[in-house]
Design a protein around this nucleic acid. Structure first.
Length: 841
RNA sequence: GCCGGAGUGGUGGAAUGGCAGACACAAGGGACUUAAAAUCCCUCGGCUGAAUAAGCCGUGCCGGUUCGAGUCCGGCCUCCGGCACCA
């Protein structure tokens, strides 16, 4: 059934997109058109889109993401690359478990049902995936191998268990990594995150902090600047010094602090430590300060993560009664517990320099602690009594003993050297990046392959016993501990070392672990080992990765870390997994991100049903450049559909006119062509050039498509005669074929169909991307814009070969120019070849 | 506060320092039709103007560089995104 009519004077064949799309989807499947192998003489190209979580249905964000990836894959194939374009499912995760709790359906069943449904949706989009490489991360054949990788990392000392305060989401009833806490809230459900003291498994991502930072340099060419910046900030390298302050009355004990401003060491007037600082309660034990410190510490610890990191909160603290000795001046320095000092960063203790640090300044003013200026701005004298805020800029050292008069940047080096010499401290580097906490107290994830034995302690599951399978018969109550912890036969185990009773680890891994190596697994999805080194070597790195910006520091950082680990384990040969990254923008409607609660959701199924996949793809690619947000607009979709119908109509009309005739006119020479013919002939080649460059240079699909639209408009203007000459028909034929070829990466179904109708035997996807003929682009006459003092006053048609002096002569003879010049003296001419002449008077 | 990115018609968006607004949507007009839809053609930044004559103004604001600035430089304003007591 169709919703439109074609003009009655032609159009015998309607554009039946449903039949066409299903026909070619079957063709590609039967021909295995997108099946990738390593046996190819062509250079490889690995095009990857971020795999989806099987939430139930695809949304417009997916449609856009996969349409972009498919254009790249199809274009690269036509350019002669051996393309790998795989798809799979990021299939572990909480929604499956929530569905189990709410609807009593098993997470496995829920997940596989969703996969089946969504796979069907993706197939209807005509995406050129090699489905034979499909991965579902919840399949034991995947997560079992992930457990093998876990054990290898364990052997290497890259996995460890530690008891610590961790981010806890009470809604999801599980722990979250730092990266997964956004503004003090859970990244998934947005409920407030609290701190919980738990035993947790960690990946030692900090061991790679420096390399993760350094290698961002290698990505400068291919990654968006802002993603690199976000990762750089997240890793947060700072260089400074650790300094040991002796504690008064405790001969062998020190308070260790970290500072990036050694130059301000002489300005220290107090110390501040975090409420969690392990030594502080010990030091105050039995003193008169003990109770007031205790009260303060307990008060702060009770506050939520959000409140504690609230910048507007007043800086507060309490004196501990403890004093340190200043290592250079030997003065006694009071130690405070302060609510703004973080235990997780540096040493959890800070030397406070109120004159040169705003936080310390505010704190000192509140508690009447002296302010000591030790950095003086050049040409100005700071007075600690009249200062209203800290001076944090550069300057010259003052009241700093032998360092006086030095520029503070030099003093950092000199004082650091001095401290090292005297063994008072040493230079150190700190990172904000923390180790990746991967334990999750949930069922639907990869079981951590470890046993706890009463006598042997923590024992890894032997490789031969892998995979540790998720038991199917579990109860989902949504209450209390993870369903695994309640599963008797899962928990009860034997220690492989001593044979004694052991308890199985019931935590599962963060689902970001699965997505940290799936891109490598796609190269060898059937391999018994985690990875087939030769295949991985052939395909990696991913040449083009495409996905949302929301993973700038989550998935993209974890994957980079995993790649380095896998490299060091001998599986990979590359340092970085993704050479080029394209972060596509969101799909917006009525000024907001599409969401159920806003009621502005466009359903891809409805869209495909009404207009077909080619239209859905075309609009997603045409309405905005890929990296920008796309404003969804129903009338715009209509416009894209109209365009495809225009192409369809014109090809059919052409075939009707051509029928019977079979003239083969050579288009080698443009001699004898009419102006109209030349115009279309040139447009055909200039469009090829523009589309090629737009796709190649920067994935400017929107302008590439608009260029094709221009060519189609030109064809409509050309085809005015009832019976064009055979040369005209040849030119028209070439133009139409060009439209079909250029359109094929964007709208593959209609392109295949039209290609076949035009009498071509190969699939249009197998055609080599054509080369444009630069000679054809040479115009017989070009238009030159004539400006007077920068204002457009006239235009001249000239031969491209005309010399500058002849052109100047012509300009001065021009009627309009003469009128504007009205006798004024011409000072000079500025020539922009083949474009413009500016006459200065 | 710091670091990115962006401000262009009614709208989405185009423009290696060289004709601002390609392409498309919406709007308006015309052709076809008994009529409507569809289709095809035309107009479409603002102002003055009868005008498809001519001219002036116009890319967030102010200034600069240049023969020439949406584009480069300096200073602001607004919006979006990220980071943020990181010592």
């Amino acid at each position: 059934m169709t919703l439109y009519n074609l003009p009655s004077f032609m159009a015998k064949v309607p554009y039946s997109f449903k039949e066409i799309e299903s026909k070619w989807q079957h063709f590609w499947e039967e021909e295995r058109s997108f099946h990738a192998t390593e046996k190819s003489t062509h250079p490889k190209f690995y095009c990857l889109v971020m795999f989806p979580y099987p939430s139930g249905r695809i949304h417009m964000g997916h449609v856009r993401n996969y349409a972009i990836g498919d254009v790249v894959a199809r274009y690269k194939r036509m350019k002669g690359f051996n393309v790998l374009h795989p798809m799979g499912w990021d299939a572990f995760g909480l929604p499956a478990e929530n569905a189990a709790i709410q609807h009593g359906v098993h997470p496995s069943e829920w997940t596989y049902d969703n996969i089946a449904f969504m796979k069907n949706q993706l197939k209807k989009m005509g995406l050129s995936y090699d489905w034979s490489r499909e991965i579902a991360t919840c399949d034991p054949s995947y997560y079992g191998l992930e457990q093998r990788l876990f054990l290898k990392m364990y052997e290497k000392g890259l996995v460890y268990k530690r008891r610590s305060f961790v981010n806890w989401c009470s809604d999801c009833e599980t722990v979250l990594a730092n990266e997964q806490v956004v503004d003090g809230r859970c990244w998934r459900c947005e409920s407030e995150v609290t701190q919980k003291d738990l035993e947790q498994w960690f990946f030692k991502i900090t061991a790679y902090a420096e390399e993760l930072l350094q290698d961002l340099e290698k990505l400068k060419e291919g990654w968006p600047e802002r993603v690199l910046t976000m990762q750089r900030n997240w890793i947060g390298k700072s260089m400074g010094a650790e300094i040991h302050f002796p504690v008064v009355g405790r001969s062998s004990e020190f308070l260790k602090i970290f500072t990036t401003r050694v130059d301000t060491l002489y300005g220290v007037t107090f110390m501040s430590v975090a409420p969690e600082h392990p030594q502080i309660l010990e030091w105050v034990k039995g003193t008169s300060q003990e109770s007031s410190v205790r009260v303060f510490v307990e008060k702060v610890l009770k506050e939520s993560q959000r409140d504690r990191t609230d910048l507007t909160r007043e800086k507060e603290g309490v004196f501990t009664g403890v004093y340190c000795v200043h290592p250079l001046t030997q003065e006694n320095i009071p130690v405070y517990v302060a609510n703004f000092v973080l235990m997780e960063y540096g040493t959890g203790a800070v030397m406070a320099v109120p004159a040169h640090d705003q936080r310390d300044f505010e704190f000192a003013k509140k508690y009447n602690i002296p302010v000591k200026v030790v950095i003086q701005p050049e040409g100005e004298i700071l007075d600690s009594k009249t200062m209203t805020q800290a001076y944090v800029e550069d300057g010259l050292q003052a009241h700093c003993g032998s360092f006086d008069g030095l520029k503070n940047q030099e003093a950092i080096l000199k004082i650091s050297e001095f401290l090292e010499e005297k063994k008072i401290g040493q230079r150190v580097v700190h990172y904000k990046l923390r180790d990746w906490g991967i334990s999750r107290q949930r069922y639907w994830g990869t079981p951590i392959p470890v046993l706890h034995c009463h006598t042997c302690g923590t024992v890894p599951v032997p490789e031969g016993d892998l995979p540790v399978l998720l038991p199917k018969d579990v109860k989902f109550t949504g209450m209390g501990a993870s369903p695994l912890a309640d599963h008797e036969s899962f928990v009860r185990a034997r220690c492989p070392k001593c044979g004694g009773p052991a308890r199985r680890e019931t935590d599962t891994m963060d689902t970001f672990v699965e997505s940290s190596w799936y891109f490598a697994r796609y190269t060898c999805p059937q391999c018994d080992e985690p990875l087939d080194v030769s295949k991985v070597k052939y395909w990696l790195p991913v040449d083009q990765y495409i996905g949302g910006i929301e993973h700038a520091v989550l998935h993209l950082l974890y994957s980079r870390f995993f790649s380095k680990v896998l490299r060091d384990l001998g599986f990979l040969k590359v340092d970085e997994p993704f050479s080029r990254l394209l972060t596509q923008g969101m799909v917006i409607k009525d000024g907001a991100k599409m969401s159920k609660s806003k009621g502005n959701v466009v359903d891809p199924d409805m869209l495909i049903d009404r207009y077909g996949a080619d239209t859905a793809r075309l609009f997603s690619l045409f309405a905005a450049p890929p990296e920008k947000d796309l404003d969804w607009n129903d009338e715009g979709v209509e416009g894209s559909f109209r365009f495809l119908k225009r192409v369809w109509t014109k090809v059919n009309e052409f075939l009707e006119k051509k029928s019977g005739e079979n003239s083969n006119v050579s288009l080698d020479s443009m001699e004898g062509m009419t102006d109209l013919e030349k115009k279309l002939y040139r447009k055909t080649h200039s469009t090829l050039k523009k589309v090629s460059q737009d796709i190649e240079d920067a994935y400017h699909f929107n302008t590439a498509i608009s260029a094709i639209m221009e060519l189609v408009n030109e064809i409509y203007h050309f085809d005015v005669e009832e019976k064009p000459s055979s040369r005209g028909m040849a030119i028209l034929s070439e133009a139409l074929k060009m439209v079909v070829i250029l359109l094929s990466p964007f709208c593959p179904h209609i392109s295949e169909e039209l290609w076949e109708m035009l009498g071509e035997s190969d699939s249009v996807g197998q055609v080599s991307w054509p080369h444009w003929n630069e000679k054809v682009l040479q115009e017989d006459s070009i238009e030159i814009v004539i400006q007077i003092n920068g204002k457009v006053r006239s235009r001249l048609q000239i031969a491209p070969t005309l010399s500058s002096s002849e052109l100047e002569k012509k300009i001065l003879e021009d009627e309009k120019i003469q009128k504007f010049l009205s006798g004024a003296r011409v000072k000079k001419f500025i020539h922009v070849p083949k474009k413009l002449v500016n006459v200065i008077v």
